[in-house]
Design a protein around this nucleic acid. Structure first.
Lengths: 159, 159
DNA sequence: TTAGTCAATTCAAAATAAGAAGTGACTATT
DNA sequence: AATAGTCACTTCTTATTTTGAATTGACTAA
């Protein structure tokens, strides 16, 4: 069985994790939501090495999460911006933030979210779109597709 | 400036990322939400190496995200379960799932979420707790604390 | 002329991960 | 009783990544 045949890779969670489930990548995406656009700023604000930053930016661009936008022709300069696919990662970053605030925070909450429509600082949470109630782990049950279920059964049998 | 002084580490998002922002760790947590509890099952269902699995489980236990629960004394056997802190990662995993379904999915959605209260399969999303509206990236504005803002300004100046 | 900015690339050394094999305490099967 | 199998790991060697420092090239500002 090859790596990509594993049930972990049929799963869209696993595929998402393969694209953005990496320490530096998530920090880059956080920076983008805070408005950072330039190579040197990413470097200084995250503390990562330039080598790795260049690599990650290339990967994210190839995946369509960010795009390079030239802002100067001579010398060639450009900035990095989130694509729509990238902006859609907002919920992931916010979920991490809420968890961090709840379990790893101190008295100071470094980043707060203001809902433009309300004008208020809020703590967004996961909601059922059907009944409008907040959903957490114990309110939900995971249902596996037939396909996925079969793959997992096979994987558990064969080592 | 030492690594832990970087503004990336004052930030609760960065701290969350340091604890769980890693490919294999996120896959382990996903497995736990799917009900997996035993070493060998994690191995087979994720495809990771036993070395790395043992290491990650140790780290997650040390951080209080999971706990070892003995279920047999002789031979000593135990399983791994999420703690409350671990279960609180649900929103992170679901946010990743929604993103994966939207941007990396095929026709088959491998994992669906059923809201127990409704009995319906739903796609949870981030909501403003104040007005109850769905929130996405463009509806929100990040506000940095005075402290965090100052740290970032310093980091941008000093390379 | 010298220093500085920006967006990288290059290179050696250190850290981490992969993959295979082995371990120890059992249970189940022949 | 001997052999095979399960579970939860650990150990080992080899390969891959990451770090950290230095360098590059096309400019601008003092």
């Amino acid at each position: 069985m090859s790596r990509s045949d594993l049930p972990s890779h049929t799963c869209t969670i696993a595929r998402a994790v393969a694209q953005v489930g990496d320490e530096w990548t998530l920090l880059i995406v956080r920076e983008m939501f805070l408005g950072t656009r330039r190579f040197d700023d990413f470097l200084r604000l995250t503390g990562m090495s330039s080598h790795l930053l260049a690599q990650r930016l290339k990967k994210l661009e190839a995946e369509g999460v960010i795009r390079r936008a030239p802002y100067l022709e001579r010398p060639p300069r450009h900035e990095y911006r989130l694509t729509e696919k990238g902006r859609d990662l907002w919920a992931v970053i916010i979920a991490l933030k809420q968890w961090g605030d709840a379990w790893l925070g101190t008295d100071d909450i470094p980043v707060q979210i203001m809902h433009k429509a309300c004008g208020k600082v809020v703590r967004p949470h996961m909601t059922c779109p059907d009944c409008g109630e907040r959903i957490e782990a114990h309110d939900a049950e995971a249902q596996l597709s037939r396909n996925f279920e079969l793959e997992r059964r096979a994987a558990r049998r064969a080592p």
